[in-house]
Amino acid sequence: MNNMNDEIVYGKNPVIELLKSGKPVNKVLLLSENKNLRNQEIISHLEERNIPYQFVTREVLDRQAQRERHQGILAYVAATEYAEVEDILALAEQRREDPFILMLDEIEDPHNLGALLRTVDAVGAHGVIIPKRRSVSLTGTVAKTSAGAVEHVLVARVSNLVQTIKELKKKGCWVSGAEAGGQDVFSADLTGPRVIVIGSEGRGISRLLRENCDELVSLPMNGKVTSLNASVAGSLVLYEVLRQRRYSK
């Protein structure tokens, strides 16, 4: 369930007006009892804008709306506007740099996403790509954890990561997935147009996405622990890309 630090809009008319406004919406919850024509106008808006929605019980809506009159619907408003993948590529072109993009596969912890946005800003990467489903979105917690970076980093939210990778490859990007068993990241060539893929906290990179990476890279692990937190691992790989870009010139 979404974090209570998200801004929540509830009530049928306010949610409809929110959707008509074009403002970024993370997700909409609808009362499962109302799976009928009463919700058809709202569902049409949601599907037209490709916004995730879910039918839930009245108890869930009551809890999320803190007992306010929600009329069987509430929406989670994004902490900031989402970008398009084209915006990220345009920023790289504007800076006259090779694209440097972070793609996150089903990262569910808002603290991990916030920390990674902070690193993305620090290394000068051009943006982040996240999936629309099974992933944390730009919530209030993410914004807070990012220490303001959410206002400076372009984040694109896409329906299909695999399709997005294929499109980026056509534009000349090389895709490196961070996964155990891959080539030592410190000996890999990470220069040139680059997409770094970081997998979920528990499962890593999904099979289809992994199969569409050009290479897999991993961090050397000399201790007893066999994996690192997603934001730590992602930050180390991003800084290795920055190091190579800076010193290979």
Rank of each mutant, 00 (worst) to 15 (best):
residue 176 S to T: 08
residue 108 E to F: 04
residue 174 W to F: 15
residue 51 I to G: 02
residue 42 I to G: 05
residue 35 K to T: 05
residue 55 F to D: 06
residue 242 L to S: 13
residue 97 E to S: 09
residue 181 G to Y: 07
residue 93 E to W: 07
residue 112 N to A: 03
residue 225 V to C: 10
residue 103 M to T: 09
residue 101 I to A: 02
residue 27 K to P: 06
residue 117 L to M: 11
residue 188 A to K: 06
residue 100 F to P: 01
residue 36 N to C: 12
residue 62 D to G: 06
residue 69 R to F: 07
residue 214 D to V: 09
residue 33 E to C: 10
residue 239 Y to P: 07
residue 9 V to N: 04
residue 45 H to N: 13
residue 205 I to W: 00
residue 245 R to D: 11
residue 228 L to P: 09
residue 187 S to K: 15
residue 240 E to K: 08
residue 169 K to H: 13
residue 220 P to N: 08
residue 221 M to E: 08
residue 32 S to N: 15
residue 79 A to T: 01
residue 49 R to T: 12
residue 4 M to Y: 14
residue 100 F to V: 01
residue 13 N to M: 14
residue 43 I to A: 08
residue 25 V to K: 00
residue 203 R to L: 10
residue 112 N to F: 01
residue 110 P to E: 01
residue 48 E to V: 10
residue 75 A to I: 01
residue 159 S to C: 13
residue 59 E to P: 07
residue 143 A to N: 09
residue 94 Q to A: 10
residue 16 I to Y: 10
residue 34 N to F: 13
residue 70 H to F: 10
residue 68 E to V: 12
residue 3 N to V: 04
residue 184 D to Q: 09
residue 190 L to P: 02
residue 9 V to G: 07
residue 154 L to G: 05
residue 218 S to E: 07
residue 47 E to R: 11
residue 154 L to T: 07
residue 197 V to Q: 06
residue 69 R to A: 14
residue 21 S to Q: 07
residue 190 L to R: 00
residue 219 L to R: 04
residue 106 E to H: 07
residue 18 L to T: 12
residue 245 R to L: 12
residue 175 V to F: 04
residue 93 E to Q: 12
residue 140 G to S: 06
residue 206 S to A: 12
residue 129 I to H: 03
residue 101 I to G: 02
residue 184 D to H: 08
residue 122 A to E: 10
residue 75 A to E: 05
residue 26 N to H: 03
residue 69 R to I: 12
residue 30 L to H: 05
residue 32 S to V: 15
residue 38 R to S: 15
residue 248 S to V: 07
residue 29 L to D: 00
residue 197 V to K: 03
residue 180 A to W: 14
residue 85 V to P: 03
residue 43 I to P: 04
residue 61 L to H: 04
residue 119 T to M: 08
residue 61 L to M: 12
residue 198 I to C: 00
residue 67 R to A: 14
residue 38 R to F: 08
residue 211 E to T: 05
residue 160 N to T: 04
residue 18 L to W: 14
residue 75 A to W: 05
residue 244 Q to V: 09
residue 72 G to V: 02
residue 14 P to L: 04
residue 189 D to V: 11
residue 52 P to F: 05
residue 185 V to D: 00
residue 96 R to P: 01
residue 240 E to M: 04
residue 231 S to Q: 07
residue 19 L to E: 10
residue 90 A to D: 06
residue 46 L to I: 04
residue 192 G to T: 07
residue 28 V to Q: 06
residue 227 S to A: 11
residue 57 T to I: 12
residue 241 V to F: 02
residue 168 L to I: 02
residue 166 K to Y: 11
residue 83 A to Q: 09
residue 50 N to Y: 11
residue 12 K to A: 05
residue 60 V to D: 11
residue 210 R to N: 07
residue 190 L to A: 04
